[in-house]
């Protein structure tokens, strides 16, 4: 199943690594703000890109609880399931 949480996390990491400013050693447990040095606007803009790939929309209040790449993957997974 392509939309499992680990698959989504891999996809996120791949997209993040396409940005040369992102540290190379990130994994699913990396913290988006602290480890990747994203500010709130950068997080929102990055999430928009993933939304298109997965054809979902993430409400902003959901972003508030997200710390790690894994949190984001699991949030996207849940929304995708709800939307199906």
């Amino acid at each position: 199943m392509t939309d499992s949480i680990p698959n989504i996390a891999d996809m996120i990491i791949e997209k993040l690594l396409a940005n040369p400013k992102v540290p190379r050693n990130i994994n699913a447990d990396s913290r988006i703000v602290e480890d990747l040095a994203f500010d709130s606007l950068a997080v929102m803009n990055f999430v928009m890109e993933i939304e298109d790939t997965l054809d979902v929309s993430v409400p902003l209040d959901k972003l508030a609880d997200i710390r790690t790449i894994n949190d984001l993957a699991s949030c996207l997974h849940d929304i995708k399931a709800e939307q199906a």
Partner: peptide, 16 residues
């Protein structure tokens, strides 16, 4: 619930 769409992009709003 707040959903952002791309700036000045009606097609993106349409999708969302």
């Amino acid at each position: 619930q707040v959903i952002r769409f791309r700036h000045n992009d009606p097609a993106d709003l349409d999708k969302r």
